[in-house]
């Protein structure tokens, strides 16, 4: 279509809204429209430039971020202070969830590698929401809990796998 007409007839439909984006997230997928509208008023939308630091290792964190668009690099500092890339996250991923429930230092740094739009969910807002609107907040927290538990389960399985591999290789060394 002609970009001019495309601009005029662009669907400003539900798919463009923040509520729709949130409903595509695994942790918020069981919320109904009313609760999504509520969540929309709890989160903050933040825009980041290329190479802008989102948070640094050791900062006192205050919440988690989900990526609406763009790309985020998670990295830590090694012994010689070199950057060690831990992950590249894309639209729909989330990070920093450890700080959502308690003020802990960040265990890695995050940096935007493209112009990025993040949706931040912060502890203070969540605490207030729990106090004032317990029912939808409980649903949000349950969803988060489910996703984080899944991650923990995966981590445990992986750890188990690695332990097994380690035992095998030690055994081989002892044999060989």
């Amino acid at each position: 279509m002609n970009p001019f007409w495309g601009n005029i007839f662009r669907s400003s439909g539900y798919e463009q809204t923040l509520a729709y984006f949130l409903s595509t997230m695994p942790m918020f997928k069981e919320l109904d429209k009313r609760e999504l509208a509520f969540l929309e008023n709890v989160v903050h939308v933040r825009k980041y430039e290329v190479d802008e630091i989102i948070f640094s290792e050791g900062d006192i964190g205050s919440g988690m971020y989900t990526i609406r668009s763009g790309e985020v690099q998670i990295y830590t500092r090694g012994e010689q202070d070199q950057e060690i890339e831990q992950a590249i996250l894309e639209s729909g991923d989330f990070f920093g969830e450890i700080s959502l429930t308690a003020s802990r230092p960040r265990c890695a740094s995050a940096r935007a590698t493209e112009p990025t739009v993040l949706v931040g969910l912060f502890r203070t807002d969540m605490l207030e929401a729990v106090r004032r609107h317990p029912a939808p907040s409980a649903k949000i927290m349950l969803g988060l809990n489910r996703v984080i538990s899944d991650r923990l389960l995966q981590c445990s399985l992986q750890l188990e796998e690695l332990k097994k591999q380690l035992a095998d290789s030690q055994k081989q060394q002892a044999d060989g």
Partner: peptide, 21 residues
Amino acid sequence: MRSLISLTPNRYFEVVLDIYA
């Protein structure tokens, strides 16, 4: 207050949010 807080630069946003709360 939300719109005022969202004016803070990214770097200080979390701190300002915490302090405000």
